[in-house]
Simulated scan of single mutants.
Amino acid sequence: MYFLVQSRPIKLHETAMNDRILAFIPAYCCAAQIPRVLKQFADPEVHGLFDEILVVDNVSPDDTVQAALDCARAMGLGKVSVVRNQKNYGLGGSHKAAFTYAIRNGFTHVMVLHGDDQGDVKDITGVLRTGRHRDYDCCLGARFHPGAQLRGYSLLRTTGNHVYNWLFSIGSGRRLYDLGSGLNLYRTSALQSFYWLKFHDNLMFNYCMILAHVQRSERILFFPISWREDDQVSNVKLFSQARRTLGILWLYVKDRTGFLSREFREVPVESYQFETVASRL
């Protein structure tokens, strides 16, 4: 089942079939999980959908980079690149580095799959194979509706997410099924104005993005995903994040027209850059 939020008609020329899709995997302290994530692309029907698989390590203090290199070499797909941010930019900052890379290298879409192995890339392959993604500016994985599957997710976090989805839906005026999962796809042409550059560099980045999609009247497709928590280590402090999340919604409700130009970062970064450790393994 798919859920869509649409605000304007689709033009025929927007359904051109010359896709170049970047699979972006943000990773931080994922040495145990990153091989499992990369192995999701071993299926030819999966890796055949992507032109490059980009692992962006956010200066992990563990062996995430080496684990990614070892797995990529063993897989031998010829399209896995491993890079390391020049400094710890946060999850949002890693998105910004990957978005910039996708724009500058001519990718039509960039898919995000978190490196902690909570999501499954196969949840989006049906959308890609049928070409439905060409009709939308973003396709967002949704964890919290009857079509999704959750494993190991606490009742507190599940309930809290449902409440926040409801609050953001009311505040934005559009039905939102998830505020930011670890499996999303973006049309690169919709990112080219760099409107996202001033958004938070931390975990709040996705909350800014979902409200930006609404404010920009973008076409959104929500699709159900499977989500699990096994050996992942969460960096989220639930109650402090809940308060900050509400603060973002309040800023949007208070000043929708100024939301996209607001500077959310405490310390603005001029350029989100990474060094390439290995390319096209």
Results as ranks from 00 to 15, higher is better:
A97Y: 04
D135R: 11
I124F: 08
G106K: 03
F24S: 06
F264W: 10
L12N: 14
G115N: 07
S193M: 08
R104D: 15
E52D: 03
A32H: 11
R174M: 09
F41L: 06
Q86W: 07
K254H: 15
H162T: 12
H13D: 13
S81M: 05
Y252F: 15
W227I: 00
Q241C: 07
K11A: 15
S271T: 09
H145D: 08
D135Q: 12
S271Q: 13
Y195D: 12
A23Y: 03
A74P: 04
G171T: 06
V253H: 08
R129N: 11
W166L: 11
R84N: 11
L77W: 02
V82N: 02
Q215A: 09
L197S: 14
D135T: 09
Y207E: 06
T158W: 12
H213P: 04
D70G: 05
G258S: 10
N88V: 11
Y177N: 01
E229Y: 08
E229T: 03
R243S: 10
L176S: 07
A278I: 09
Q273K: 10
I210C: 05
V236H: 14
P26L: 08
I210E: 02
G78D: 06
L185P: 04
V236N: 13
R134C: 05
V269I: 15
K254N: 15
G48R: 13
E229H: 08
A242K: 10
E275V: 13
T276Q: 07
S261A: 14
D63P: 03
G115P: 03
S7D: 15
L251Q: 12
V37Y: 00
D231V: 10
L246N: 04
R132T: 13
S169D: 09
K96F: 02
L69V: 15
T100W: 11
C138Q: 04
G182H: 00
G106T: 04
V83D: 02
T257K: 14
L203W: 06
D62E: 06
G76P: 10
Y136C: 08
L246S: 09
A42P: 00
Q241S: 09
C71H: 01
V277P: 02
I21N: 00
L156N: 08
L156W: 07
A42Q: 13
R134K: 14
G147P: 00
N235H: 12
F168I: 11
H213S: 12
T108V: 07
R36L: 14
L150N: 11
V56N: 07
M111K: 01
L77N: 01
I220D: 05
S94E: 03
T276D: 04
A16I: 12
F99E: 01
W250E: 11
I10F: 05
D51P: 06
I225N: 02
L49G: 04
Q232R: 10
L246W: 07
E229I: 07
A67I: 07
V82W: 01
D231F: 07
A278K: 08
T158Y: 13
S60I: 01
K237T: 09
P26N: 11
